[in-house]
Design a binder for these strands. Structure first.
Lengths: 125, 125
DNA sequence: AAACATACATAAAACTCTTAGGTATTGAAA
DNA sequence: TTTCAATACCTAAGAGTTTTATGTATGTTT
């Protein structure tokens, strides 16, 4: 799957996280205006304290698909001789972002009830 | 995928939920002592107010796999001429259950931070 | 009698991600 | 100065999970 997730010592059985990649991409791009692929992997790594590490094999094809679907737009920039491809959310992308984030929030609440989790006792340091 | 998830009117794009089936099964069986496949589908439907509906095509093969892995044990019962196959969690299954539930809780917290969600404002009625 | 619910099951196809490559530039350490 | 790590893009085969579409059969409701 597209993520390797770790706690302090342990690697999650990452099946848990399937299907969240687009939601993550849309959320970050809505907040940051524009980002390039590698930057996204680093930002997610930072924000999750190394718990979620996007793999490029999953990220790049997904970015391309989302561009084809009209959710993202691109602009290429050169840093020296090195290429950077910046992605931004389109208007459709913004709508999709709020849909997806809402869906995920609802899903989390549903799962919280189903698994009887007490999120207040959860301390992720 | 194994679930069709709905809100009041809308069907989730269910990629969001991949990989949670085993966790759900283990949690329910830990709480209920023993359940049969069809019962699990109905229980999940009830507990999630129709938001998550397990499909049999995903459930039965997963139950069989978990039995083969030693996480579940089975006993067959006849209700008239109709067969019921009850599943219970083994000792290994109980350990696995708490691991999986913890993992999922951690993951939810990580995603909550990443997506900047405020769960207090989430009301799922 | 027909339709729906209960209850099991399998298999092809679809979808997503992992794993494993590949290319090339830039900067730091040895 | 060469080698390693980081930056930065990319693709493709395979693995794994779920969907969709079946199939069988019994029990209940209309």
């Amino acid at each position: 799957m597209f993520v390797a997730v770790k706690t302090k010592t342990m690697l999650y059985s990452s099946e848990l996280i399937k299907g969240t990649l687009r939601t993550i991409i849309l959320k970050l791009l809505c907040d940051q205006q524009k980002m390039y692929g590698y930057e996204i992997t680093q930002k997610v790594k930072d924000l999750t304290k190394n718990r979620i590490q996007l793999t490029e094999g999953a990220l790049y094809p997904t970015l391309h698909a989302m561009e084809n679907e009209g959710l993202l737009t691109t602009e290429v920039e050169y840093i020296g001789k090195r290429v950077r491809k910046y992605y931004s959310v389109s208007k459709n992308g913004k709508e999709k972002a709020s849909e997806k984030i809402n869906e995920f929030a609802q899903f989390m609440e549903t799962m919280r009830v189903l698994l009887n989790l007490d999120l207040n006792t959860l301390k992720v340091q």
